[in-house]
Design a protein around this nucleic acid. Structure first.
Lengths: 198, 198
DNA sequence: TTTATTTTTGATTACTTAATCAAATTTTAA
DNA sequence: TTAAAATTTGATTAAGTAATCAAAAATAAA
């Protein structure tokens, strides 16, 4: 169903998408304008409108790209492990690593999620993530599988634990100063999570 | 140093502040305008400019109010406990309770923190919170005191644990659907934290 | 090559925005 | 009461916005 796009059109859309991510990092969502994106990409403003129906479509297209990229990054690292405990560790490490290695993507994602709204005017951050977000589902499935295979304790509640781990891992992105040692935080987080699930 | 304000002026500023919180909840930061705030408060736009130097001052004034109110709410509940473990529990419960009881304040706080920027164009959410945020400091001091008094285990890292608890407690605000039982999550979170610190 | 199609430009449009300000109104002080 | 000060209005201004579109340029097809 996706409209057939030419090679040039796809390349241009990709360029505009990357320019959007750059401008979101520079100026934030509030001051994001087609003029700024055009300037960043060194193209005319009209060209953005030629390739995207409107600003909203551009933002949703960017949002989709950012979510897919992050999921792929983490999923890949989790799936490369066979042991279920190692998968849990991989999930935590990958979540933190993505925030470091793709910092600009992460910032752009935050800018969009905390500003873009659905057609019904509901902001994304209010959206009931737990049910749909594939990242949550991935983490939860690891925890459940670990319990079923008796590798993890049956004491903890998978959903609550998934929320806690995700919250703790995401929180780290908001904390990168000289005085904060992220590597050490990762170690401590793994220790704490291990204590909880084992 | 704070300029002496008349009674009327203070009342009007308070009214405009509350209207700002209401509009932030209705439309979000991106579509926040002086015209909308004026309409909400049933006053003219010029009156906002009379009481606040510019939009920025209004937003920072609102931000300060929201931070102070939340801190006061949680600090009060923590200080009402004498036992250090009970203080930790009170911190978690108060954090979750504030999100429920002052939902609109919480939404407004999120809208501002994820959009407002310092004079140097640094967004608040990128600001190295851990060092300054009094809420973090309160939680960390509880954890440290508990360790010093040998009530808590000496195994865990206070700073990392503070980040984890805060992240887990804040995360809950993003998750309120019919299918999600917040009361149960609070119970589970307390269980997990207890396991970690005891 | 010649023609048709796609892509790109940049000026233009209609609209929204924050901030200003003269004039009107209300409150306070003498 | 009367004058001065504080408060409030709403029209106006200047700057910025997303989107449109005719014309130009580049690319593909015949």
């Amino acid at each position: 169903m996706t409209k057939e796009k030419t090679f040039i059109s796809e390349a241009r859309r990709e360029q505009i998408l990357q320019a959007t991510i750059a401008v979101l990092n520079d100026t934030g969502y509030v001051k994001l304008s087609l003029a700024k994106i055009a300037k960043q990409a060194k193209i005319s403003t009209g060209l953005i409108s030629y390739h995207f129906a409107d600003k909203e479509e551009l933002i949703y297209h960017t949002l989709g790209y950012l979510i897919r990229t992050q999921l792929q990054f983490i999923d890949e690292r989790v799936k490369s492990e066979t042991d279920i405990y190692q998968q849990l560790i991989a999930y935590i490490k990958a979540t933190i690593a993505y925030q470091q290695e793709h910092y600009q993507n992460n910032v752009a994602l935050i800018e969009i999620i905390f500003n873009a709204r659905t057609a019904d005017n509901i902001p994304y951050y209010k959206l009931n993530e737990g049910e749909e977000d594939p990242l949550y589902l991935l983490l939860e499935s690891i925890l459940i599988e670990g319990q079923e295979k008796k590798i993890f304790s049956s004491e903890f509640h998978p959903k609550a634990t998934a929320i806690l781990i995700n919250g703790a891992a995401s929180e780290s992105m908001l904390l990168h100063s000289e005085s904060f040692d992220l590597g050490n935080y990762e170690q401590e987080l793994i220790k704490m999570v291990t204590k909880m699930v084992k």
